[in-house]
Amino acid sequence: MTDSATTPGTDVMIRLDRVRKCYPGQAVDAVAELSLDIRAGEIVVLLGPSGCGKTTTMRLINRLIEPSSGRIFLDGKDVTAVNPDLLRRRIGYVIQQVGLFPHMTIGDNVGLIPRTLGWDKARTKARVDTLLDLVGLEPARYRDRFPKQLSGGQQQRVGVARALAADPPVMLMDEPFGAIDPVTRERLQDEFLKLQAQIGKTIVIVTHDVAEAVKLGDRIAIFAEGARLAQYDTPERILSEPADEFVSSFLGTGTAVRRLGLRRVGDLRFEPLDGTRPIDDRCVVRADQSVHDALDVMLRTGSEIVTVTDGTGEPIGLLPFTTVLDHHPTDGDDPSRPRERSGH
């Protein structure tokens, strides 16, 4: 475990202090003595195999499950004994199964907590429309529909909007993109990251998908059986320096390739354009795409070099395969510093 996981910071938003949960009648703890700090404004991904206690950990944070022992702090205050209903209104929760109320319209689902908090109709409606807009559902079109009239993916967005309704500083999201096909899922992840850049919440996301964890997490907490914290670190470091056998076997093969997804083309030193080479419009990547995408283009087109463009599509440089190779840290390298080219 690295120091970032244990050193208390002033900006710790959620702190679990030796929290333990044993379900009644169960021989083993579902969560055994878990200590975890989550900083304000960061996305922490809980990653681990099925049944390792991810959902239980989430529900301990908002006290949907009472801990058997240990303490939970929210924003520096011990919340182990406060009124759980009031606590939960400060913590948005997207449950694993979405859980929209089928007898309420989308608008009523999203506006339920604001109404409960005593907001008037007009203010609630404005909030609902803002949130539906935010998650990409045109309010006029979707507000008065019922959940069953929405696709699974749309329902998941409404679930996210509903959790955001009272503007809680903390969000708990249990596999929010679980029931979605890979393509839509990837797009939702991108949009989710953009959304987070705007709203800057403290977010805990559960997944058992390594790729999703690497993409979304500022830090990843890898859980083993009983919510044992196997490693808690940045995606880069987890991929390059797995703490133990369990972590590396859980990450599986392909960690080097996954790390390509963490670095953007614009972060590499690419070569200046030389006018001699005509731009093949298939061999082009944008600077804000990942190195993984660049490599994908190379493999698909069979070209050793791709043209890098800026956001407007204007070419700004060339990226040869060797640069990708040289920038990629091999196992044991310090991932924060790309290896310099040598021997050329």
Partner: peptide
């Protein structure tokens, strides 16, 4: 906050004739 993020443009997500 009104910017459209998490936007759904895919036809994949349209419900299939489930309106009354």
């Amino acid at each position: 906050m009104a910017t459209t993020v998490l936007a759904s443009r895919g036809s994949r997500e349209q419900p299939s004739g489930r309106d009354n």
